[in-house]
Amino acid sequence: MSGLAAAILPYILLYKYWALFIITFIASLAIPIPAGTLLVASAAFAAQGYFNIVILIVVVIIANMAGDNLAYWLARYYGRKVLYRVGFIRKILTSKDFTVIEKRIAKRPGLIIFLTRFEVIATLTTNLICGLGKVPYKKFLLYEALGALVDTVFYAMLGYLFGDTWQAIDKLIGNFTLVIFLAVALGVALSWKKLIHHLSQEAV
């Protein structure tokens, strides 16, 4: 378990659902806190009787959705004004490659929004790109809500079913997520030019 997760867990034990709501909200909005780990741990505590698992799942889904949607709207209204002030970020946002990716996501955002709910940095990045690219809000909300539901229930069930071995399971999930992340990054790096060419054809 990461040092950050170990530092946050006492607050979940002390302040219960409120702490879980605030931490999940902040993780969805802006800061890559290991919310998945904290949810697995909290669900394990629920299996031991410290929380009610249904209330836990509802609280986390609401917090996730609140954070994601606020991030989307902030990016949509203020994203470019704020980010364009930072030199290297402005270069990335105005680059041809980023424009192609942005158009592609705006055209068919569903699967990307849904899948990125399972990894915190991917969630933050996708919320930002969807807001900047003005993805239709109804589409964003639909796939974001579905993703939040599946993601929350998945991690909650892991913690609830595995009980006091949740730390071992959580470490395994962390390793698995890292493998997926690196494999995707490697695939993208190897096929970058072809990928951009294909996306720019689709975006037209």
């Binding site: 170990a6 530092a7 867990l9 006492p10 034990l13 002390l14 394990a44 505590f45 299996a47 031991q48 009787g49 410290y50 009980g163 006091d164």
Partner: peptide, 20 residues
């Protein structure tokens, strides 16, 4: 869930320990 003392760590509260 079977709970054992081996799982107790310093970040746990006494309230939590009393319950489990």
């Amino acid at each position: 869930h079977p709970v054992t003392v081996d799982t107790i760590t310093p970040w746990m509260t006494f309230d939590y320990l009393n319950l489990v």
